[in-house]
Amino acid sequence: AGSTTLRAVGKLQVRLATKTEPKKLEKYLQKLSALPMTADILAETGIRKTVKRLRKHQHVGDFARDLAARWKKLVLVD
Rank of each mutant, 00 (worst) to 15 (best):
A1I: 14
A1N: 08
A1W: 05
A1C: 09
G2N: 13
G2D: 15
G2A: 10
G2W: 08
T4L: 10
T4A: 10
T4C: 10
T4W: 12
T4Y: 07
T5I: 14
T5L: 12
L6V: 09
R7H: 13
R7V: 14
R7G: 06
A8D: 15
A8G: 03
V9H: 00
G10S: 13
K11G: 07
L12V: 05
L12N: 05
Q13A: 10
Q13W: 05
Q13V: 10
V14R: 07
V14T: 11
V14L: 09
V14A: 12
V14Y: 08
R15W: 14
R15H: 15
R15V: 14
L16H: 03
L16V: 04
A17D: 15
A17T: 14
A17R: 07
A17W: 08
A17K: 09
K19Q: 15
K19F: 14
T20N: 10
T20V: 11
T20F: 08
T20D: 13
T20S: 10
E21L: 05
E21M: 04
P22V: 07
P22T: 09
K23Y: 11
K23P: 05
K23A: 13
K23N: 13
K23F: 10
K23I: 08
K24Y: 10
K24C: 14
K24E: 15
L25A: 00
L25C: 03
L25V: 03
L25W: 02
L25F: 01
E26K: 07
E26L: 11
E26M: 13
E26W: 06
K27G: 12
K27Y: 13
Y28N: 08
L29H: 00
L29Q: 01
L29E: 01
L29N: 01
L29S: 01
L29I: 12
Q30R: 06
Q30K: 09
Q30A: 06
Q30E: 09
K31P: 03
K31L: 13
K31G: 06
K31R: 09
L32Y: 03
L32M: 03
L32V: 04
S33K: 07
S33P: 03
S33E: 11
A34Q: 12
A34M: 09
L35I: 12
L35A: 01
P36N: 09
P36H: 09
P36Q: 07
M37P: 03
M37E: 07
M37F: 00
M37N: 10
T38V: 02
A39V: 11
A39F: 08
A39E: 06
A39L: 10
L42W: 03
L42K: 01
L42E: 03
L42G: 02
L42A: 01
A43F: 07
A43C: 09
A43M: 12
A43D: 09
E44M: 09
E44I: 08
E44P: 02
E44H: 04
E44L: 07
E44T: 07
T45L: 02
T45I: 01
T45R: 00
G46V: 01
I47K: 03
I47T: 01
I47S: 02
I47V: 08
I47Q: 05
R48T: 12
R48E: 15
R48W: 14
R48S: 12
K49N: 15
T50E: 08
T50K: 00
V51W: 03
V51Q: 02
K52Y: 14
K52W: 14
R53W: 12
R53T: 12
L54P: 00
L54N: 05
R55F: 15
K56P: 06
K56R: 11
K56A: 12
K56H: 14
H57V: 11
H57T: 05
Q58V: 14
Q58M: 14
Q58A: 12
H59S: 11
H59G: 09
V60A: 00
V60C: 04
V60Q: 01
V60P: 02
V60Y: 04
G61W: 05
D62G: 06
F63M: 12
F63V: 06
F63T: 07
A64M: 04
A64W: 03
R65G: 04
R65N: 11
L67K: 02
L67A: 04
A68T: 09
A68L: 12
A69V: 09
A69E: 13
R70E: 07
R70C: 07
W71P: 00
W71S: 02
W71G: 01
K72T: 02
K72R: 07
K72N: 03
K72C: 07
L74H: 05
L74G: 02
L74W: 07
L74T: 05
V75S: 10
V75T: 10
V75P: 08
L76T: 13
L76C: 12
V77E: 13
V77P: 13
V77L: 10
V77M: 09
V77D: 13
D78T: 07
D78C: 12
